[in-house]
Computed example of a mutant assay.
Amino acid sequence: MAETQEATVSFGVLNETSEHESRVALTPDIVARLRKAGVSCLIERGAGLAAQYTDDDYTKAGASVLPADEVIAKADALGFVDRPSTELLGRLKPGTWVIGMLGSFTDAEYVAALDKAGLVGVAMEKLPRQLSSAQSMDEMTSQNSVMGYKAALVAANAYGSFFPMMTTAAGTIRPAKVLILGAGIAGLQAIGTARRLGAVVTAYDVRPASRGEVESLGAKFLDLGLDFSAGQGEGGYARALTPEEQAAQQAAVDQKAAGFDVIITTAKVPGRKPPVLLTKAGVDGLKRGAVIVDCAASDLGGNVEGSTVGTSVTDGGVTIIGAPYLASDVSNTAANLLARNVGDVLAHFVKDGRLSIDLNEELDDALIVAGRPAAAPAQA
C-alpha cells in the first residue's frame, strides 16, 4: 500500500445541490485516495447529502467540513459538477485552480472570465479521452454511461405497455420496439439496458465504427441507405454533419421512426448545438402512445425538433421527455464516478507537493492558464 504523503495541496468542493442536480464532485472514498497523493480535502456542509453522503462520512474519511466561504478561502483547487458561475469566479482568489466541464469549446467569454480572475482552469471536456492515461479522468464517458442507463428506465416507465414480450392467459403481448439514435457511450448503455428489459432494440449512429458496437450488444443497426463514411471525428466523437448530410439523415430517420414505440436520442457534439435527428414531421408520424426521451435537450435545443427540458405531450399523443439531467437521477453512482474523474485530474497536476502546470504536452490543451493564450478548440 502506498504511503500517505503529508498534505500540502488543499482541494475544495462546494454544495451544488439544486432542483436538477444531486451529484457532488467529491466522495469519502476519494478523500482517502487524495490523501495518499498529498492532498487535503475541504467540503461545504451538506454538499453530499443528495448523493447519500453525510458530513460525518466526510469527516471520518479525513475531510474538513466547512462553510462555503471557508472552503473558497482555503482551497488551492476547486472541483465542480457544473461549471461555477462568473459571479463565483470573481470570489475566488487569484491562482485558484478550477476543475470541471467549463464549456471552453464555444464560450470564449467564460474563458476570458477565468483569465480576468487570474485562475487556472482545467477544462475536462478537452482531456484526450483516447489516451489510456486519461481514461479515468473522462467525465463525459462516466456520466454518459449513467445517463444512457437511466434513459432506458425513464422510457420504460413512461411507455404504456411492457418492454418484454409477455405471454398471459389473456394473450401474448408483443415486445416494445425501441430505437436508439446515437450509439456513443450513452447510446450503448441505453441499448444494453433496453435489451435487458426485453425490448427489441434498433440503433443508429453516423460513425461507421458504431455498427459493430451496436450489433455486439444484440441490437439491429438501422440502415438509412446513406453513406457518412467520414462521420467520426477526433477523440471518438461524432463530427458535425454538413447541412446537406443532416437534411438527408433527418428525412430518412423521420421515415423509419414511425415503426417504433420508443425512441431514445443521445447524440451530442461536444460544446456545440445538438444535431436534430427527428423533426416535427417525424414526431407527428409516430403512433399515439409512443415515447421519446431526448437526452440532448438543452437551452441550445435537442435531438428532437421542438423538444425542451421536461415532459410534454403532442396533440397526437406522443410523450416527449427532454432529460439532460438523467445522470443526476442516479446521484450516488454518478457522484462516485464523477469524483474519481475529478480526483484523478487533480492528482495528475500535483507535482512535488504543489499544483504544477509543467506536465507532459498530451494533457496541456485542457489547461486554461491566466495570461496564456487559450489552445484552439479541438475538432469534435
Rank of each mutant, 00 (worst) to 15 (best):
G236E: 05
I185C: 08
A155G: 06
Y159P: 07
G187W: 15
A155E: 08
D223K: 03
G187C: 14
D223I: 06
L179R: 08
P243G: 05
T193A: 13
A155V: 02
Q189D: 08
A186R: 14
L197Q: 11
I173N: 01
L181M: 10
T167C: 09
A219E: 04
I185Q: 15
G218Q: 09
A252R: 08
E215C: 06
F162C: 07
V154M: 13
A248Q: 13
F221S: 06
R239P: 01
I191R: 08
K177P: 12
L224F: 04
T172A: 05
P175S: 13
V200E: 11
I185Y: 10
Y237K: 00
M165N: 11
R196P: 02
A155F: 13
G218D: 14
R207E: 07
L153V: 05
D223T: 03
T172D: 02
E213K: 15
M166W: 05
Q249D: 05
G225K: 00
K177G: 06
L222R: 08
Q189C: 12
L153P: 03
G231E: 07
G160T: 14
A240G: 03
R195V: 06
F228E: 11
L217G: 02
D223M: 04
L241E: 05
G171M: 11
A170H: 03
F228N: 12
A176E: 06
